[in-house]
Amino acid sequence: MKYEIEPVIGEYHPRRGVVFLLSSDGKITAKAIFEDFDKKIKDTLITRFEYWQSGKVHKKYFHGWDQSEYKGKYTNCFVFKLHTHRLYGFLRSRIKKHPSYQVCVLVLHSEKEDWETYEPDLKKVETIRSTLAVQKAVEDFFRGK
């Protein structure tokens, strides 16, 4: 399976960026669903990406999971939220050149009505994150920066 990275925001930001993971793998849905949203939803989500990029903390709009949750299995996972929409992804730092630069790689979209996280979504993200081909795609993206 081939994986690619497409920047959404922050390609030239000194600290953070948001990217989509692209693939023919049917589980990778974030980009396709995002593209189908109407302009207002897209602009609102982009604004939330930009809030995260700017260092803002706003748990109603986006958050990760710390060591105390799910036995620390999903500390690399991240979610952006809007209404019932959830865009799940994982965080990755650029280790070599600029360790402070971090990307959120958006992987899948999910819809939910309640506040509790649906763990299978996180499991899917974690499985995708740990795939060697995905890690290589992220490394290639960093290399090209």
């Binding site: 600290r15 260092g55 903390v57 748990k59 986006f62 958050h63 990760g64 996972c77 730092s93």
Partner: peptide, 10 residues
């Protein structure tokens, strides 16, 4: 005040 509870943050 600035909340920086660092969940999922650098």
């Amino acid at each position: 005040r600035l909340q920086r509870n660092a969940v999922g943050q650098v």
